[in-house]
Simulated assay, not measured.
Amino acid sequence: MVADSKSKSDISFAGTFASSAFSACFAEVCTIPLDTAKVRLQLQKQAVAGDVSSLPKYKGMLGTVGTIAREEGLSALWKGIVPGLHRQCLYGGLRIGLYEPVKTFYTGSDHVGDVPLSKKILAAFTTGAVAITVANPTDLVKVRLQAEGKLPPGVPRRYSGSLNAYSSIVRQEGVRALWTGLGPNIARNGIINAAELASYDQVKQTILKIPGFTDNVVTHLFAGLGAGFFAVCIGSPVDVVKSRMMGDSTYKSTLDCFVKTLKNDGPLAFYKGFIPNFGRLGSWNVIMFLTLEQTKKFVKSLESSS
């Protein structure tokens, strides 16, 4: 990600893809416990008045992390890490690697001056939608594994691992089932990618115009936090719908899931898990962008010397 007048990548597409995939995977490993907590909170149903058995099991980000660790062990917080890394290699590499070329396509190769924010948003939405269309199966398996909590004694787990999940879904539900929730996932990832990449690009560009600021770790930190905040505020409702559709196959469509969630749990349900979501996306963006900027410098030096 650059903030110069032409906003062109200074390394090859392959270098950008590899840097993006590595940075996204590193951020995923660091923050997936918060993502697991977010998924559990989003899938949790609203309590029924007078029914003690329906009282929510998970309460808050730290409470959810603590409950999962206590009941299922610390390793349960990293459920879905394997498909999560599969996802980041594909999705993270494509959405960021394609951002600069697509932005140049929308502005024109002869564009001079700052790229309009609208073009940045359009480019980021496009790359997010394309990338998640390819990576949807990995997202589905990740959510399915994260959604499974502690089971009663003698009850077998739905899937023994990520590879078993892929094969079981294809065998039991068909190949098309791997793209369950693609609609809300495209909406969610297109919107969140637009919020993340466009806001990071814009915030970084703005900060670099302030006297005293340079293209360093402090600038990357502020821009990463801004990217995470905008992403959660804008993308939380579609993220909840996506998680519910992937975690529960009874929903007929995106609209059906939206209507039932609104009817049964109320409008605030669309911001369930907001704090862990921001904790996760905020920290994820900071880690990812800081790692990405340093990794791209390293890759650039390798390409320059070759």
Rank of each mutant, 00 (worst) to 15 (best):
Ala131Pro: 02
Leu74Tyr: 11
Lys242Pro: 01
Lys57Arg: 15
Ala223Leu: 04
Ile275Phe: 15
Leu74Cys: 09
Arg158Pro: 00
Tyr58Arg: 08
Glu72Thr: 02
Trp284Asp: 14
Gln202Trp: 12
Gly73Ala: 09
Val175Ile: 13
Val134His: 03
Gly66Thr: 07
Ala76Asn: 04
Thr31Leu: 10
Thr36Pro: 02
Lys296Tyr: 03
Lys38Phe: 13
Ser54Tyr: 04
Arg280Gln: 14
Thr67Ala: 15
Tyr159Gly: 02
Asp248Asn: 14
Val115Phe: 03
Ser283Gln: 02
Arg244Ile: 04
Leu221Asn: 04
Lys204Asp: 02
Thr36Leu: 06
Thr180Ser: 13
Ala177Asn: 05
Cys30His: 04
Ser5Lys: 08
Lys79Phe: 13
Thr64Asp: 05
Arg95His: 13
Leu221Gly: 05
Asp10Asn: 14
Val286Lys: 03
Ala165Thr: 02
Ala194Met: 09
Ala227Trp: 04
Leu262Trp: 15
Thr261Tyr: 06
Ile132Gly: 02
Gly235Gln: 01
Phe105Ile: 01
Arg244Cys: 11
Gly63Val: 09
Ser306Trp: 13
Val232His: 08
Tyr200Gly: 09
Val143Asn: 03
Ile186Tyr: 00
Gly60Leu: 00
Leu77Asp: 05
Ala123Gly: 06
Gly174Ser: 09
Trp284Ile: 00
Leu34Tyr: 08
Arg87Val: 10
Val240Pro: 08
Gly149Leu: 04
Arg171Asp: 12
Thr291Glu: 03
Lys263Val: 09
Pro267Thr: 10
Glu293Lys: 12
Trp284Pro: 00
Trp78Met: 11
Glu303Leu: 11
Pro276Asp: 12
Ser5His: 11
Gly161Ser: 12
Arg87Ser: 13
Val52Met: 07
Phe274Met: 07
Gly228Thr: 11
Val259Thr: 14
Gly113Trp: 08
Asn264Phe: 10
Lys272Asn: 14
Tyr99Glu: 12
Ser162Arg: 02
Ser5Cys: 05
Ser243Trp: 02
Asp256Pro: 07
Leu117Ala: 12
Thr16Ile: 06
Ser118Trp: 01
Ala21Asn: 02
Phe230Arg: 00
Gln202Gly: 00
Ala37Lys: 09
Gly93Arg: 06
Phe26Asn: 00
Val2Trp: 05
Ile234His: 03
Arg176Lys: 14
Thr107Val: 08
Pro137Arg: 02
Ser199Lys: 08
Gly66Arg: 10
Pro116Phe: 12
Tyr58Phe: 15
Asn164Trp: 07
Tyr58Met: 09
Ala129Phe: 04
Gly93Ser: 08
Ala18Trp: 01
Gly80Ala: 10
Met288Asp: 06
Gly97Asp: 03
Ser75Met: 07
Ala3Phe: 06
Ser19Gln: 05
Glu293Ile: 01
Val134Arg: 00
Tyr166Leu: 15
Gly282Ser: 03
Val65Met: 12
Ala231Gln: 10
Met1Asn: 06
Ser253Val: 06
Ala24Asp: 01
Cys30Pro: 07
Lys242Met: 15
Asp139His: 10
Ser54Gly: 10
Asp248Ala: 09
Gly60Thr: 03
Ser249Met: 05
Tyr99Leu: 14
His111Asn: 07
Phe270Tyr: 12
Val170Phe: 12
Gly174Asp: 08
Phe22Leu: 15
Met246Arg: 06
Lys252Glu: 14
Asn189Ser: 13
Tyr58Ala: 10
Glu293Arg: 13
Val52Ser: 14
Lys103Met: 14
